[in-house]
Design a protein around this nucleic acid. Structure first.
Lengths: 283, 283
DNA sequence: AAGATATTTTGAAAATTTTTTTCAAAAATA
DNA sequence: TATTTTTGAAAAAAATTTTCAAAATATCTT
C-alpha cells in the first residue's frame, strides 16, 4: 500500500498553490497533524478548511478525519529510533523491546543472505528424504528439537540428536537418500561439524544452517542455509540468529506441507485432532 | 509507554459495568474502532456516548478522539497485511518472507499486551528462586528447554519437564521459594495447567506464558505473561507466538544477568570459556 | 435485617467543537 | 474578454464533549 507521503509526492504536480502549501507543511511536519484540528491546520498552512478536505480527497481519503487517522498509523512505525545496547538501568520490559528490535533486524538481514535456490533445494531434499537427522548442541539443541517436531508433524521420519556421542553414531549409520542437517550459529562446533562430515561420507545429503561467512561447517555441507545477525553483546546466546534459524525451518516445513501428497497433509490434520482431547477448551 | 490494551486490562477492576462493556468490546475488536464515530461505538457497546468519553479519560486520554488516534497508532503494524496466507505456488523463499512478516507483527502485538510490571515481577522472582521448573508440552517443549538452557547459563537451578508424568511429579515436590513456569500458547493444555495448579498448592510461585485472553492457565498463575498473535492458518504450529515466548524468556534472562551478583555473571563467563575448547575457531 | 442516606455510575439531551458542504469571489488559463 | 479552475468564508451537518438528573450501588443507622 502506497504511503501518504508517497501519494503526496506523486500527486503534487496536480495540486494548486494552496493545496501545495498543505503538502509542503505535511512533508515537513508529518506527525504533528495528529494533534491538530482542521482549522488549526488551516491556520498553519495559510489556507481554508475546505482546501484541506479537498486535499484529503485527492489522496483518496474520505476527508480530514481519515487523513489524520492514516497518518497516525504510519507515523507509529517511523517514530521508533534505533538504539540497541541493553543498559543496567533498563527495566525488563525495556530489554524486551530492544530484543524484538534485534530480532526484526536479524530477520531482515537474513532475507538478504539466504539463497532462494538453496532453501528451495533444501526443502525438496528434506521432503523426499528417507530419513532426516538433525544435529544441534547446546544453544542450537532446542532448534534441532523444534525442527524434529515440525518434520514429525509433516509425517516425515526425523530425529534430533543433541548429544555428541549419539550424533556420531547416528551419522555413521546413514545412507544415500538420507539427509543430515547441522545447526550451528558459529559453524565451528566440533562435534556437529564432525557429525556432518561423517554423514556425508555415508552418502547422505548434508545441509547446514549457520551464520553468514566462512566457517568449517560449510565445507561439509551440500546445501548451505545462511542467517545473518550482527550480535556483539551476549553473543553466546545468539538469540536473534536462532530466531532466524527457526524461521527457516518453519518456511521449509510449510513448504513441505504445501507440496506434499495427501497423506502428509492428513498427517498434520491427524496431529491437530489428536491434540484436541488434550485441551480444556476447543480453540 | 503502556499500551491502550494494557491500560484497559489494568484499570478494568475500577470500571463500572457500562465501562466494562466498552473494555470488553475493544479487547475483542481492537482496530475496528478506527472506522467508528462515538455514537456508533456507543450503540455497539450498548452504552451512552458520555460513558465512552469517561472511559477514554480513565485511560488518561483527552477524549474519544484521542482514543481513536492512539489505537490507530498502535494497530498500525497489525493493520497492514494482517495474516499473510501462504499460497501453494509460493517458493520456499516466498514463504520465508511471509513468515518473517508474521513474526514481526506478533512481536509488535506482544509489546502491547505484555505487562511491564508482570515481566519485571517474573524476572525478579526467577532470579531469587531456590529452584525453577518449566513445563511445556508438544509445541512448547522446545521453548521450555530453551528457557532451561538460558537459566542454567545464568547459574540458576532450572529444569524443563516436557513429559506430563514428570511434570506432575516435579510439581508435587516443590516448596515455597520455588518457581514453576508453564508455557502454553492456548493456555488450555490440561497437563500443564494441572501441573501449575499442583505447583501452586505446594507454595511455589507460578508463572504462565500464554496468548492474550481468558484461559484456564491464568487462574493458577500468580504472574501472567501474555503474548499476542492472531494466527488463523497453521495455528497448530503457532510459530510467531512461540517467537514471542522466546523473546520474553530472553528478556528475563538478560535482565537476570544484568542484575545478578558477581557470581552469576561469572557463571556466564564460565559457560562461555567452557565452550571455546569445543570450537575450531575462536568466534 | 430493614430502611435511610450518601455515593457512584450512567445516559439523554444540550452545548460545543469539529468537519464537511455550499457557493460566490478570486485567480489562472484560454 | 470569456471560460475554467481554484479558493476560502460562511452555512450546514456531523461528531464530540459537557451537563445534569435519574438509576444503581454502597454505606450507615436503627
Amino acid at each position: 500500500m502506497e504511503s501518504i507521503l508517497l501519494k503526496i509526492k506523486r500527486l503534487y504536480p496536480e495540486m494548486g498553490s494552496s493545496e501545495r502549501k498543505i503538502a509542503d507543511w505535511l512533508t515537513a511536519n508529518f506527525q504533528e497533524i495528529i494533534g491538530l484540528s482542521i482549522n488549526e491546520l488551516a491556520t498553519r498552512c495559510g489556507c481554508g478548511e475546505a482546501t484541506i478536505v479537498r486535499f484529503s480527497r485527492r489522496l483518496g481519503l474520505s476527508g480530514y478525519q481519515e487523513l489524520k487517522l492514516k497518518i497516525a498509523q504510519e507515523s507509529a512505525n517511523t517514530a521508533q529510533g534505533g538504539v540497541l545496547g541493553v543498559e543496567s538501568t533498563d527495566s525488563c520490559y525495556d530489554i524486551f523491546n530492544k530484543r524484538i528490535r534485534d530480532i526484526a533486524v536479524a530477520l531482515e538481514n537474513t532475507k538478504t543472505v539466504l539463497s532462494p535456490d538453496e532453501i528451495e533445494k533444501a526443502a525438496n531434499v528434506i521432503k523426499d528424504a528417507r530419513r532426516i537427522v538433525i544435529f544441534g548442541l547446546g544453544n542450537s539443541a532446542s532448534i534441532a528439537v523444534d525442527a524434529q517436531h515440525k518434520f514429525l508433524r509433516a509425517g516425515l521420519d526425523a530425529i534430533a540428536y543433541c548429544d555428541n556421542h549419539m550424533q556420531a553414531i547416528a551419522a555413521s549409520h546413514l545412507h544415500k537418500g538420507d539427509v543430515a542437517i547441522g545447526v550451528s550459529h558459529s559453524g565451528a562446533s566440533i562435534d556437529v561439524v564432525d557429525a556432518l562430515k561423517t554423514a556425508r561420507e555415508t552418502g547422505a545429503t548434508t545441509i547446514c544452517i549457520t551464520n553468514f561467512g566462512e566457517s568449517p561447517i560449510n565445507e561439509h555441507s551440500d546445501i548451505v542455509l545462511n542467517t545473518r545477525s550482527d550480535e556483539t553483546k551476549y553473543t553466546i546466546l545468539a538469540m536473534s540468529s536462532r530466531i532466524a534459524q527457526l524461521a527457516i525451518f518453519d518456511a521449509i516445513y510449510t513448504y513441505i506441507v504445501m507440496h506434499s501428497n495427501k497423506a502428509a497433509v492428513r498427517a498434520i490434520k491427524d496431529a491437530e485432532t489428536a491434540l484436541h482431547s488434550k485441551k480444556y477448551i476447543q480453540n
